[in-house]
Design a protein around this nucleic acid. Structure first.
Length: 576
DNA sequence: GCCGTTTTCGGCCCGACTGTTTTCAGTCG
C-alpha cells in the first residue's frame, strides 16, 4: 500500500472520529499524520521495516502501529470498525456548506439521515427546524447548499477564478476608499484548482467598500455580511469572500488570509516560541497588548526573523525553516523562460501554422520554439506520417533561413507504446532536433507495467524529454498509476528532461514532484502544449506550478538562451 | 493522539460570522 492511500485512510479516520464525537485533538492528530505520510520522502515500507516511523514528528505509538498494520497487511481493523459504524453517505452530507461533523451527527442520530437525498427530502418536509442547534434559516441554507453541490462539484481551475478575481480587483482599485487590495488564499498561492476567491482590501470605511463590492457586475447574491467580511456568489457559481481591514493591519491580514492553513499554524506556533502572538491584525508581545508595526509583508517576515517567503510555497513543507536559515530558493519567473517546447501546428491537431506559432512565441519574448506535432500512432490527432515529417522539416528549414535571432527546432511528440518503445524507428527519431515521449493510449495498465513503460522510454537515447508524465486532467481524470520516484530516478540516470505541462488542465508533472525532481538533479521543461496561438500563453500556469515546486531558473530547461540551447540539443542527440 | 531548554500531564492556533440562543455552539478559513 502506497503512502497516498495510507494518507487517505488516516484522513478518513480523522473525519470519522469527528462524526462520532471524539476529541477534536484526536482527529487533528490523524489529519497531521495523514499529511506527514503524504509528504514522506523516504519509502514508507523501508521506514516500517526499519522500525523508524515513530521517530518522525507527529507519529506516535498509536499511529505507528496503525500505519505499520496497513503497510504489512494492507488492512486496518481499527479503520474497518469505524467504517462499519458510519454510513457512507454522511461523507457527502459533510460537503454541504454550513454542515460540519456536529450537525451531521445530529441529523443522523435524530432523523436517521444517511444520504444527500434523504437530507433534501427532510428539508422539504420541514423536519430540520426542530432539531437542537437547527432552525428555519439553517434548513433553508442546507437546501441551498444541496442545490449548490448538485450544480457544480465545487472546484474551479485556476485561470477561471483568476480572471474573475482580476476583474473584481481591478474595479475596486479605482475606488478611493480602497487603499490596498489583493487576491489572497489559494488563488494567491497559485493552487492548481480553487474552491473560492479570497480578496483582501484595506481602507477605513469597510461598509462603503463592501457596498461597492456588492454592486460590482457579475455578483449574483450576498450570502453573508458582517462588519468586516462579505461573502457573495458570482453568476458562474464561484464564491467570493472579501475581507476588509485597516491599512495598518493590511500586511498582517495579507499574510493571514493567504495561508495556507498549515503554514499559518506553523507560523503562529513559531511566533509563540519567540514570545509573540500573531493574528490577522498584527504581531503582539505575549506579555502585553503592544503591537509591532510593519509596513509590508516583507517587514512582517523580517520581524519574525525570516526572509520573505513567496506565497506559492507557503505550505509548511520546510519554507519556514529555509527562510530562517536564509536558504529559500530564488524562484523561477516568467521572464526567465527563453523558449517554448511542445507546440502543435496544423500538421497534426493544432490550428495555427508553424510560422504563426513562431511569430506569436517571438512576440511573447521567446528566442526559440520547439515544434512537436503528434506521431503516427495518434490517428485521432492526425499524427504525422514519414512524408509529412519530411515536408514539415523542409518548411522549418526554410523559415529558419529567413528568421533572425530566432530559431525553430524541429521535434516530435512521439507516442510511448505499451511496451515502452516509441512509434518511430531510430532512423527517423535521430533526424529530429528533440523528441518528447508521451503516453496517449493504454492508460489502464497496472502501476508496475506503466512504470516500466515510462522508464524504458527514458532509456531510449533519442528521447529528450518525457511529456505529461501522469496523463492527469484536473477536475476530470486521475492520472494513470505510476511510480514517479522510479521515473525521476531513471531520468536522473539517463540525463533526461521531464516536462511540466503548463496546460491548466494538466500541470503535470505536479509541483510536489517537481521539487523531488529538482532534488534528484533532473531538469524540468515548462511546456505550453499549445494547439493554437493563445495556448502559448498558458506557459504562465506552468511557471506558477514550478514556483510552487521550489524551482529556480537553473532547474528549468527552457531558461537556456538560444545559443546554449542549440549547443545542448546538438550534443544531447543520441551521443551519450 | 501527540508532545515536552517550563512539562510524562495538560495543553493542543485563532477569530469572524451565523443562527440559535438568552450567553454560545458550530462552521469556516
Amino acid at each position: 500500500m502506497d503512502r497516498k492511500e495510507i494518507s487517505r485512510i488516516l484522513n478518513e479516520i480523522g473525519v470519522m472520529l469527528e462524526l462520532i464525537g471524539e476529541s477534536p485533538f484526536k482527529s487533528r492528530a490523524y489529519y497531521n499524520g495523514a499529511r506527514t505520510v503524504e509528504l514522506l520522502k523516504e519509502d514508507i515500507g523501508d521506514l516500517v521495516a526499519g522500525d523508524r516511523l515513530k521517530d518522525i514528528k507527529g507519529i506516535g505509538k498509536a499511529l505507528d502501529e496503525k500505519i505499520s498494520e496497513l503497510v504489512k497487511t494492507g488492512r486496518l481493523r481499527y479503520y474497518d470498525n469505524l467504517k462499519n459504524q458510519i454510513p457512507e453517505g454522511l461523507f457527502e452530507i459533510l460537503k454541504v456548506p454550513g454542515l460540519g461533523p456536529k450537525k451531521v451527527r445530529t441529523l443522523y442520530e435524530k432523523l436517521s439521515i444517511t444520504t444527500l437525498g434523504e437530507l433534501e427530502y427532510s428539508c422539504i418536509e420541514n423536519r430540520l427546524v426542530d432539531l437542537p442547534g437547527f432552525g428555519e434559516k439553517t434548513q433553508q441554507k442546507v437546501l441551498e447548499g444541496i442545490q449548490y453541490l448538485k450544480k457544480n462539484r465545487g472546484r474551479y481551475l485556476y485561470p477561471e477564478a483568476w480572471s474573475r478575481a482580476e476583474e473584481l480587483i481591478g474595479a475596486m482599485e479605482k475606488e478611493e476608499e480602497v487603499k490596498h487590495i489583493s487576491a489572497a488564499g489559494s488563488l494567491r498561492r497559485k493552487s492548481e484548482t480553487v474552491k473560492d476567491i479570497d480578496i483582501l482590501a484595506a481602507g477605513y470605511d469597510a461598509e462603503a467598500i463592501m457596498d461597492k463590492f456588492e454592486a460590482l457586475p457579475g455578483i449574483e447574491k450576498t450570502v453573508e455580511r458582517g462588519s468586516s467580511k462579505l461573502g457573495v456568489l458570482l453568476e458562474n457559481g464561484i464564491r467570493v469572500d472579501l475581507r476588509v481591514v485597516s491599512p495598518e493591519q493590511y500586511p498582517f491580514a495579507l499574510h493571514h488570509f493567504t495561508g495556507s492553513k498549515e503554514h499559518n499554524t506553523a507560523m503562529r506556533h513559531r511566533s509563540k516560541g519567540m514570545g509573540y502572538k500573531i493574528n490577522e491584525y498584527g504581531i503582539f508581545r505575549e506579555d502585553g497588548d503592544e503591537g509591532v508595526s510593519c509596513a509590508s509583508e516583507e517587514e512582517f517576515f523580517k520581524t519574525l526573523g525570516l526572509s520573505f517567503i513567496p506565497p506559492e510555497i507557503r505550505e509548511n513543507t520546510g519554507e519556514i525553516e529555509a527562510a530562517e536559515e536564509g536558504n529559500l530558493p530564488s524562484l523561477v519567473e516568467a521572464a526567465d523562460i527563453k523558449g517554448l517546447f511542445h507546440v502543435h501546428t496544423v500538421y497534426s491537431d493544432g490550428s495555427a501554422s508553424i510560422e504563426d506559432m513562431a511569430e506569436m512565441a517571438r512576440s511573447l519574448g521567446a528566442e526559440y520554439i520547439g515544434i512537436s506535432d503528434h506521431s503516427r500512432s495518434a490517428y485521432y490527432a492526425g499524427g504525422l506520417k514519414e512524408d509529412q515529417i519530411k515536408r514539415q522539416r523542409e518548411e522549418i528549414d526554410r523559415l529558419n533561413g529567413k528568421l533572425r535571432d530566432f530559431r525553430i527546432f524541429a521535434g516530435i511528440e512521439s507516442d510511448i507504446l505499451p511496451d515502452g518503445s516509441l512509434d518511430y524507428p531510430d532512423s527517423i527519431l535521430e533526424k529530429f532536433d528533440f523528441v518528447i515521449a508521451s503516453v496517449h493510449s493504454n492508460f489502464t495498465m497496472d502501476r508496475d507495467s506503466m512504470t516500466k513503460r515510462l522508464v524504458r522510454a527514458l532509456e531510449n537515447p533519442f528521447v529528450t524529454m518525457l511529456g505529461h508524465p501522469t496523463g492527469r486532467l484536473l477536475l476530470a481524470r486521475e492520472g494513470y498509476p505510476v511510480d514517479l520516484e522510479s521515473v525521476i530516478e531513471a531520468a536522473a540516470e539517463k540525463g533526461k528532461i521531464i516536462e511540466l505541462n503548463a496546460n491548466p488542465y494538466r500541470l503535470d508533472l505536479e509541483w510536489h514532484w517537481c521539487r523531488r525532481a529538482k532534488e534528484r538533479g533532473v531538469k524540468i521543461s515548462i511546456n505550453p502544449d499549445a494547439h493554437n496561438l493563445e495556448g502559448l500563453k498558458d506557459i504562465i500556469y506552468g511557471v506558477n506550478a514550478a514556483r510552487k515546486g521550489w524551482l529556480s531558473k537553473q532547474d528549468v530547461f527552457n531558461t537556456y538562451p538560444l545559443d546554449v540551447m542549440v549547443d545542448v540539443l546538438s550534443r544531447g542527440r543520441g551521443g551519450e
